[in-house]
Design a protein around this nucleic acid. Structure first.
Lengths: 336, 336
DNA sequence: TTGTACGCGTTATCAG
DNA sequence: CTGATAACGCGTACAA
């Protein structure tokens, strides 16, 4: 703080220099009116002269507010490279947090030690609220939030056990819809590359798939995958082709998975959409880069981020809040 | 802070409950020795009973340290989706910041208003130091850092005008090397898709390309592009093919650009690497997803993040620091 | 080994 | 409209 040599100027210094009291300077700083034009002018000059900048630590101490909102993202190593939605969610959150005059600070938890440190940070009154992405049910961060009652919102989960509002989409309904349309286009042997069945997003997509197919659902045609990643898609499609060479329709749990599958299909000489129809999920950057472009379901990622931010800002303002489910849209392109 | 009803417990409460003085509790908290076993036990119990958690605002005020390091990223909308290196850099920074017992807080600046707010945040003593990614020369954030003398480090820039250390790679040398190897493989008409010539990374890559080709350099074969993106690659390759249909070698300024170019080449019936050799830059996730895999130059992104973090931690510790240049490695795959 | 008292830089309260 | 003065919660010399 005093890295450049001379110590930081304080309100005290400004007041002295401007020949007014600290109270007046403070009123000036917080534009709470009642400062004469003359005093105002002298203070303005004094601030410039002594190079005053406010010390937030002190301010937070008394106001009990930090004017900062946290954004915690788990498992960033796979998330930033595989899930382009995260970036959009983050930006959406930033939109409304910034509009509310707050600073968004994103906290990455990459290791167990990180989780502990972030939990401490949250507890330490560094942020007034927090939005969380891809959190687990009972990790230390969720626990910390609940124990201190920090205003929070999850995006993309819906564990009813924790009493924190969330914003999500109806994964089940969306998956059912895109599956139905794929089926209606005349496909007979439709399989699914089902990622992350241990997360509710993954489980719901799988359920929607099964629901849409009804009696025609064949468990042999769904291959469970650990991640929403490209390489999972490669692995899964290879497996599916072995199990059922006649497959003519594939629902991938994400666009990245679909992209991986597409590559395998191409390598095996299958034409898409000629021989097999393929659909993804997310409408991420992948979708328009595949050849042919992917039919997929669009997640309103930025809006989800915005909604989550609003959820915590509302709590901060003392308003009642409830979880929200945002609508999705299936976009039909060349792959099916 | 009092969102859950009862007010937060303080050191005072703990001391009272444990029948010791505030000073003793403080010593216990900061493990600065000199606390009897008996007192220690009582304090431990008291902390649990009243649910004490330290208030960092107060602590920072007196210690003049926040134990937090900032990580500011500009233009995140294009960065997180197009440049997978950013995520790795961030994780690398987090590695060493966390090891140093500090919390990494990442600040995204998406708009001009964001820049101003982040500058304020930095000035407000919320962080002890900061690493910056893809900053411009004279934006308000850089200015803020210099004016208050905040320990900082850039990753990936080298504007000699600002006296802040940076960690980078030798873009020029790396570009020259990969261009030379492409040339050596017998290509005669080698073009370049040159992104971001207004940033030093872009300019240096272009210079390296020109240097490697020497007399054979033909300005007509370099098409300048605004971004390191896939769509820039599509646009650039289309343009290049128009200018010179006989092109048989292409140096792309990034893997994303190369991926876009690859798609265009394929659409125009050119075989890669048969008809035209193609190389990228970054060794990002794109490289292994293209078909064929991209030859490219590997950036030690995570290490760059680590080095940058070390740079600011060292400054904090009062040590002298100097910019560092990390070595790159060209990896030879199927595309050339 | 423990307790006391002061200061960190602001904002808030309340007389003037 | 302005100026004292009291918090805010914690670390830390210094005294005991």
């Amino acid at each position: 703080m005093t890295a450049n040599g001379r110590p930081r100027a304080t309100v005290h210094d400004v007041a002295e220099r401007a020949s007014v009291s600290r109270g007046t300077v403070s009123r000036y700083l917080n534009s709470s009116g009642y400062v004469s034009d003359e005093a105002r002018a002298r203070i303005t000059a004094a601030i410039a002269e002594v190079g005053y900048v406010r010390n937030n630590a002190a301010r937070n101490l008394v106001t009990r507010r930090s004017q900062a909102i946290g954004f915690v993202v788990h498992e960033p190593h796979l998330i930033f490279s595989e899930d382009p939605n995260i970036g959009s969610i983050m930006l959406g959150t930033n939109d409304v947090v910034a509009a509310g005059g707050c600073q968004l600070v994103v906290l990455v938890v990459d290791t167990e030690a990180d989780a502990a440190r972030v939990a401490d940070y949250l507890r330490g009154a560094f942020v007034d609220g927090v939005v969380l992405v891809s959190a687990r049910s009972h990790d230390r961060i969720t626990d910390a939030i609940e124990s201190i009652g920090l205003p929070a919102a999850f995006v993309g989960r819906t564990d009813p056990a924790v009493k924190v509002p969330h914003v999500g989409i109806d994964n089940r309904q969306a998956a059912a819809e895109i599956t139905r349309r794929l089926a209606r286009s005349g496909r007979a042997r439709i399989g699914m590359l089902a990622s992350a069945l241990d997360r509710d997003s993954g489980a719901d997509r799988w359920e929607g798939f099964a629901e849409a197919l009804g009696a025609r659902y064949d468990e042999r045609l769904v291959v469970p995958l650990p991640l929403y990643s490209y390489s999972a898609g490669v692995q899964g499609m290879t497996e599916l082709l072995e199990r059922e060479p006649d497959v003519d329709g594939v629902v991938a749990a994400s666009d990245a998975v679909a992209a991986g599958a597409l590559e395998v299909l191409r390598a095996h000489g299958r034409d898409v959409p000629g021989d097999v129809g393929l659909v993804g999920f997310d409408d991420s950057a992948w979708a328009q880069r595949c050849n042919p472009h992917l039919s997929t379901v669009r997640q309103p990622a930025r809006d989800m981020g915005r909604a989550a931010a609003r959820l915590v800002l509302d709590q901060l303002a003392g308003r009642d809040v409830a979880s929200v489910t945002l609508p999705t849209e299936v976009v039909w392109r060349g792959s099916a």
